[in-house]
Amino acid sequence: MTMPPASRLRLSVDLDALGSNYRALARLAGPAACAAAVKAECYGLGLEQPARRLWAEGCRDFFVATLPEAAQLRALLPEARIHVLNGVLEGEVAAFRALSAQPVLNTPEQVALWRQAGGERPADLMLDTGMNRLGVRPEEVAGLDLSGLNLDIALSHFACADEPGHPLTRRQADRFAALSAGLPARRRSLANSAGIVEAPAALFDLARPGIALYGGVVHPALEGVLRPVAKAEAQVIQVKTVPAGETVGYNATWAAAAPTRLATLAIGYADGYLRGFSSRGQVVVRGVRCPVVGRVSMDLVTADISAVPAVQPGDWATLLGDGIPLAEAALWSGLSQYELLTLLGHRYERHYCAERPAVRETEAPHPEAPEHEARVTL
Score class of each variant (00 low, 15 high):
Leu274Tyr: 08
Phe63Cys: 08
Asn192Arg: 06
Met298Leu: 12
Ala33Pro: 01
Leu343Arg: 15
Gly148Lys: 05
Ala263Thr: 09
Ser336Asn: 11
Asp271His: 14
Leu45Val: 12
Ala40Glu: 11
Arg133Pro: 11
Gly135Arg: 06
Leu127Asp: 04
Glu69Asn: 05
Thr318Gln: 05
Pro50Ile: 00
Tyr214Ser: 13
Val229Gln: 00
Ile305Asn: 07
Ala159Met: 04
Glu328Val: 15
Leu149Met: 12
Gly268Asn: 03
Glu92Pro: 01
Ser297Ala: 13
Thr66Lys: 11
Glu223Gln: 13
Gly249Glu: 11
Ala266Gln: 05
Ala194Thr: 02
Leu11His: 09
Asn251Met: 15
Leu25Ser: 12
Ser20Arg: 14
Leu206Thr: 00
Asp322His: 10
Ala354Asn: 09
Ala185Leu: 00
Glu57Val: 09
Ala173Ser: 12
Gly294Asp: 09
Leu206Ala: 06
Asp16Ala: 11
Leu341Cys: 08
Val284Trp: 01
Glu328Arg: 12
Val236Phe: 00
Pro4Gly: 10
Thr241Lys: 12
Ser156Leu: 10
Leu326Trp: 11
Arg170Glu: 15
Val64Ile: 08
Leu99Asn: 03
Ala252Pro: 02
Lys240Asn: 11
Gly294Trp: 10
Ser147Leu: 01
Phe63Thr: 03
Ala112Ser: 14
Pro103Asp: 01
Leu134Gly: 06
Glu109Ile: 09
Asn86Thr: 10
Pro259Met: 15
Ala256Val: 15
Leu168Gln: 13
